[in-house]
Simulated scan of single mutants.
Amino acid sequence: MSKEFEIVREFEVDATPEEVWEAVTAGTGGYLWPMEPPEPKAGGRGPFGSTVTAWDPPHRYTNRSEDTGMPAQPLNQLDHTIEPRDGGRRAWVRYVHSGIFTDDWDNQYDGANRHTDFYLHTLREYLTHFAPRPVAFSTLNGPEASTAPDAFAAVGRALGLTDGDAVGARVSVRGPRPFEAVLDYRDEYFIGLRTDEALIRFFGRNHWSAPIGLSVHDFAQDADAEATGAAWQAWLTSAFSTGSRS
């Protein structure tokens, strides 16, 4: 049964409206994933075949897809309103994700709602620490075993995180190679790690019967997205190999 949904968030960020506008329209993958930049006009082509329905830099940007190619979500709209604060030195953002879900509405809404908080947090991290540096983006999924109900807890253990590691703490991480990072986000669904050169994000999509997801936004000058993705893929697969989840 089809049913409309709407997810609304408002926040301030230590960035100018112009910087926020660039982040959400350039399509670089700095905080989300690489995508086709929108054609800069109302009625233009937006990412993934959407249509730009509002284009007022740096204040309002909306894109809408009425034929998404996904039977479970036949309508999708993303709306960004950006206003200056503190004489233009900061920005206030209102983000609205709306559309229609068809199958398993409650589960789909729960996933989209929780992902929204993590994505927008990553946007603020990007704007505060990395924008407008160029990015090398990698994304990957865990094996079938990572769909298990306790899979995301296993990821935390594989990283070397303890129950006492709180958001804001500096942690020693057991990744493809050991490294130090700030634990910038953590709940039972998502983990965010920030180094001086990268944002590393873990998605507990096992909660929605999908494999664990992982993305790396690497801002180092010599970043190699392919090599980084391969290293983290091997790490994530190893985390769910026989005998490694205790």
Rank of each mutant, 00 (worst) to 15 (best):
H121S: 11
H121T: 15
T122P: 00
L123G: 02
L123D: 00
L123Q: 03
L123A: 01
R124P: 04
R124I: 00
R124W: 01
R124Y: 01
R124D: 01
E125Y: 03
Y126A: 01
Y126R: 01
Y126E: 01
Y126D: 00
L127A: 07
L127T: 04
L127P: 00
L127C: 03
T128I: 03
T128P: 07
T128Q: 12
T128A: 10
H129I: 02
F130P: 06
F130R: 12
F130T: 09
A131E: 01
A131R: 06
A131C: 01
A131P: 04
P132V: 05
P132E: 08
P132T: 01
R133W: 04
R133V: 03
P134Q: 11
P134I: 00
V135C: 12
V135Q: 07
V135D: 03
F137L: 13
F137W: 09
S138E: 00
S138H: 03
S138R: 09
T139L: 12
T139P: 05
T139Q: 13
L140F: 06
L140G: 13
L140E: 00
L140A: 04
N141W: 11
N141P: 05
N141S: 13
N141L: 09
G142K: 03
G142T: 02
G142C: 08
G142E: 01
P143S: 11
E144C: 03
E144M: 08
E144T: 01
E144K: 11
E144Q: 07
A145C: 08
S146N: 04
S146H: 08
S146M: 12
S146Y: 04
T147R: 15
T147P: 00
T147K: 14
T147A: 05
T147C: 08
A148R: 14
A148L: 09
A148Q: 06
P149T: 00
P149R: 14
P149F: 04
P149K: 15
P149Q: 12
D150N: 13
D150C: 04
D150S: 09
D150K: 05
D150R: 05
D150L: 07
D150Q: 07
D150P: 05
D150M: 06
A151I: 03
A151D: 02
F152Y: 08
F152S: 00
F152D: 02
A153C: 06
A153S: 11
A153R: 10
A154G: 06
V155M: 14
V155E: 15
V155P: 15
G156K: 05
G156T: 00
R157N: 10
R157A: 14
R157D: 07
A158M: 09
A158N: 04
L159H: 06
L159Q: 01
G160E: 02
G160F: 04
G160R: 15
L161W: 05
L161R: 12
T162G: 15
T162N: 15
T162Y: 14
T162K: 14
D163C: 08
D163Y: 09
D163Q: 12
G164H: 08
G164N: 11
D165Q: 07
D165H: 13
A166M: 13
A166C: 11
A166P: 07
A166S: 13
V167E: 14
V167H: 02
V167G: 07
V167Q: 09
G168T: 09
A169L: 10
A169D: 15
A169P: 10
A169W: 05
R170S: 15
R170I: 15
V171G: 11
V171T: 02
V171F: 10
V171K: 12
V171D: 09
S172R: 15
S172V: 02
V173M: 07
V173A: 07
V173I: 14
V173G: 06
V173Y: 06
